[in-house]
């Protein structure tokens, strides 16, 4: 039987909350946070596998610098939710602000509502799934991983992206610099629909696939580790 810890965020400073949480994440399997009050930096720097449930909205840079936990947010989130996510999973039931999943390296980030501008900015791995719409510069300077948006995407999608894939279920405003639309094959589409299904999304959008044209950067100069594998 999982042990449960409950923390009332209104009774402590954010620093106290995160310190307590870090300690609890090593021993508890399920931790609940109540009254987050849309404050910033709620749940930061947790490096252990555990389940954290937040009852309410959180502010900027919440659920960031995580490596392992599953975080469920029943509410909205501010800017840069899930920044630098390494492994684990973040679910938000509502809307999120700009720069969701900024620089994430791995793991899964699920947004039940809409996201603001620069969703998945500088993303380096993992999956960012947005059920609603995303804003301007979605996937800006993206380097790896995939962004799946079931709704519409704003202007300049995939601007200056290096690698990775952006799937758009609805319409996009315009393509960013050095981004292009690629053919999507049937297996890929089935794979995406199964991803949606496993996240409880019942629609089956006819996804468009956006990738880098690779004319903006020098893609032939490899990193040291990449050279070793050639």
């Amino acid at each position: 039987m999982a042990s449960i810890g409950v923390m009332d965020a209104s009774e402590m400073t954010t620093r106290e909350l995160n310190a307590l949480l870090k300690k609890a994440s090593k021993t508890e399997d399920l931790i609940e946070i109540t009254n987050p009050g849309a404050r910033h930096n709620i749940v930061v720097g947790i490096l252990d596998e555990c389940h954290i449930k937040i009852n309410g909205s959180v502010g900027y840079y919440s659920a960031s610098l995580l490596d392992g936990p599953t975080v469920d947010i029943d509410g909205n989130a501010g800017w840069a939710l899930g920044e630098n996510l390494m492994t684990g999973r973040i679910n938000v039931s509502g809307d999120v602000g700009a720069s969701v999943g900024a620089s994430m390296r791995g793991g899964d980030l699920f947004v039940g509502g809409d996201a603001g501008a620069r969703a998945g900015i500088s993303m380096k791995g993992g999956t960012l799934l947005v059920t609603g719409n995303t804003g301007f510069l979605t996937g800006f300077m993206m380097q790896k991983g995939r962004i799946v948006v079931c709704g519409d995407v704003g202007d300049a999608v995939g601007d200056s992206m290096y690698e990775g894939i952006i799937y758009v279920g609805g319409e996009y405003g315009s393509l960013g610099s050095d981004a292009e639309v690629a053919e999507i094959d049937e297996d890929e589409l089935l794979d995406l629909w199964s991803l949606l299904d496993s996240n409880g999304v019942k629609s089956k959008p006819d996804f468009k696939k956006i990738i880098s044209s690779k004319r903006l950067y020098h893609f032939d100069s490899l990193e040291r580790l990449e050279l070793a594998s050639v």
Binding site: G94, A98, G116, A117, G135
Partner: peptide
């Protein structure tokens, strides 16, 4: 009450 984030 749902909050909306305006785009650009």
């Amino acid at each position: 009450i749902r909050r909306i984030e305006p785009q650009q």
